[in-house]
Write a protein that binds this DNA or RNA. Structure first.
Length: 528
RNA sequence: GUCCCCAUCGUCUAGCCGGCCCAGGACAACGGCCUCUCACGCCGUCAACGGGGGUUCAAAUCCCCCUGGGGACGCCA
């Protein structure tokens, strides 16, 4: 028996029987629509769903809500699933994890929605509506101008059966609308906010089935939640005002109403709902910045929940074990990049050099595929060459990443913090940089060459080298700092680096001498 | 316009079944220590209960109003 053989809702009940799960087990779902790259909000929902499912021994489902054919984006479903993959949060059931309650793509469940709509129509709880969109739009505007809540005027509610049949037969476009209850309060208990109630007259007659035969969210999500035996509907706060609509529908079907949990929606720095305008909020962007999945997950839970010991860094298990639905926040948190960086930095620093090397290689491979998503610092370098260099000399890369790993807060930082260790990303010191510390080009050249002489045969012991450098400074009538800075610039092209001696040990004598020579060449050139 | 949700430092928040709070922690910022630079680390500083009414011996904590912010009002989800 498949969904296509179904003749009634009763048969569907039999096809999708109640799940046999331990008491208290929650069946949860996220319902992304494949209209673009998945969003940080989707990731937050995912973490929360997974955590609650794990906490209660339940099930976490991914359901693709692809009922809007106009906004459908090619490859978006793959992007959603790839993002969840990257996040490291696998669903128990979904388009790629078939289960007994599938299919998990709404476009493949159309017969079910049609059956549901017909069922309500027969009960006279739904009706055909032939009103063209233009009429509805005009109506809406008039109502709002008059200071009323816009709602359908039920123009088609009382159409005679015969007329409906003939217009349908003539091929006239129509939709099916729910006949919403006229009066009485509709209330529900939100799992995080407590009781919320609306007047029934707030509920418009929502369209259930569109003219193209596809269901709207209201019908599709509700039917699926019912037949997938979802116990708690977790969704963003923006759905609160639609909930009475859904409650009324559940009642019309005579179905058990699930629990509702409306999460906060994430805000940007202006406290607006996070959107395209707030900058890139797609998971792809966070990945391309080089956030680690575990760091990103920690950040997400941190936004949802204060650790009882007031920690910022904690394993996901702590969240699963200790969080409580009632303590979820009610005010939309601002996505704070500084906090994310701080948290991610901890995870990055904790990686051993080999894990770091692997993470970098993966990261660069990802940037190679989507170079436009990468940070500015990555755009000017040959990513492929950088990756080959990392992979061709793992021992060297490990030494590099063992040096002050806490400098990097996200993988993108390697371009500036570790770039000088690799040919593909090296930027040599400029004349201007060097002349900040040398009083004259001539003096700079003499110092750089003297430094090279200190390293004529081998790298001396650290103390001996430093004494030598200080001696150079004294002889030139300079403080030690400018001399060290010239060496730093010559070796790295940067003024902010780890300690020089450690850098020289990794670079090794040949390259150190080479770079010192190169820098003095730079000073000699343009020596007007 | 109508309805709904929310309200403690710049940010995330603890506290909220009233006194232990002239409000605690973390991020950020700033200052200092360390030092060949930067980062890390350590020490320190700045910084909030939106306003007004109640209730009470006592309110960040309870109630009401205002204000502010957010969200929803689609053949989008």
């Amino acid at each position: 028996m498949s969904i296509h053989d179904l003749r009634s809702l009763d048969e569907a009940e039999a096809l999708f029987p109640p799940r046999s799960l331990p008491a208290g087990a929650e069946v949860l779902r996220i319902a992304p629509s494949p209209t673009g790259f998945p969003h940080i909000g989707t990731a937050m929902q995912t973490v929360l769903n997974r955590a609650l499912a794990d906490k209660t021994g339940g099930i976490f489902i991914v359901r693709i809500e692809d009922t809007d054919r106009a906004r459908l984006v090619n490859g978006a479903e793959e992007a959603v699933m790839a993002a969840l993959d990257w996040l490291g949060i696998p669903p128990d059931e979904g388009p790629n994890q078939p289960g007994d309650y599938g299919p998990y793509r709404q476009s493949e469940r159309l017969p079910l929605y049609r059956l549901a709509a017909e069922h309500l129509t027969q009960l006279e709880k739904a009706y055909h509506c032939f009103c063209p969109p233009e009429r509805l739009e005009k109506l809406r505007q008039e109502q709002m101008a008059a200071g009323h809540n816009p709602r359908y005027d039920r123009h088609c509610l009382a159409l005679p059966q015969a007329e409906i049949r003939s217009r349908l037969a003539a091929g006239e476009k129509s939709v099916i609308r729910f006949r919403a209850p006229e009066d009485g309060p509709i209330s529900f208990v939100d799992e995080v906010r407590g009781p919320i109630s609306f007047d029934a007259d707030r509920v418009d007659d929502p369209i259930l089935l569109k003219a193209d035969g596809y269901p709207t969210y209201h019908l599709a999500a509700l039917v699926d939640d019912h037949f997938m035996r979802v116990t708690t509907v977790i969704r963003g706060e923006e759905w609160i005002s639609s909930t009475p609509k859904h409650i009324a529908l559940y009642r019309a079907f005579g179905w058990e109403i699930p629990r509702f949990l409306h999460t906060v929606i994430l805000r940007d720095a202006q406290r607006r709902k996070l959107s395209k305008r707030s900058g890139d909020t797609s998971l792809r962007w966070f990945q391309a910045q080089g956030y680690l999945p575990e760091g990103f997950r920690n950040f997400l839970t941190r936004l949802l929940w204060p650790h009882p010991e007031e920690k910022d860094i904690y394993p996901l298990e702590d969240f699963v074990r200790l969080f409580n639905v009632r303590n979820l926040p009610r005010t939309g948190p601002v996505v704070d990049a500084q906090l994310l960086d701080f948290i991610n930095g901890h995870y990055l620093a904790r990686l051993n050099p080999e894990a770091m090397r692997l993470a970098c290689a993966d990261y660069l491979a990802c940037l190679e595929k989507t170079p436009d998503a990468g940070p500015a610092s990555s755009r000017e370098v040959d990513i492929a060459a950088f990756r080959r260099e990392l992979e061709s000399n793992p021992g060297y890369a490990r030494k590099v990443f063992a040096l002050e790993p806490e400098r990097n807060r996200k993988l993108a930082d390697i371009f500036v913090n570790n770039g000088f260790f690799f040919e593909a990303t090296l930027k040599s010191a400029t004349r201007e940089q060097l002349l900040k510390y040398a009083q004259t080009p001539d003096q700079g050249v003499r110092l750089l060459e003297a430094m090279r002489d200190l390293l004529a045969v081998s790298l001396p012991e650290q103390e001996a080298w430093e004494t030598g450098m200080r001696g150079l400074a004294e002889a030139a009538g300079l403080k030690p700092k400018p001399v060290f800075m010239m060496a730093r610039l010559a070796l790295t092209g940067s003024e902010k680096t780890p300690p020089l001696y450690a850098i020289m040990e990794i670079l090794e004598l040949g390259r150190v001498r080479e770079r010192l020579g190169l820098a003095s060449q730079t000073l000699k050139q343009n020596f007007a």
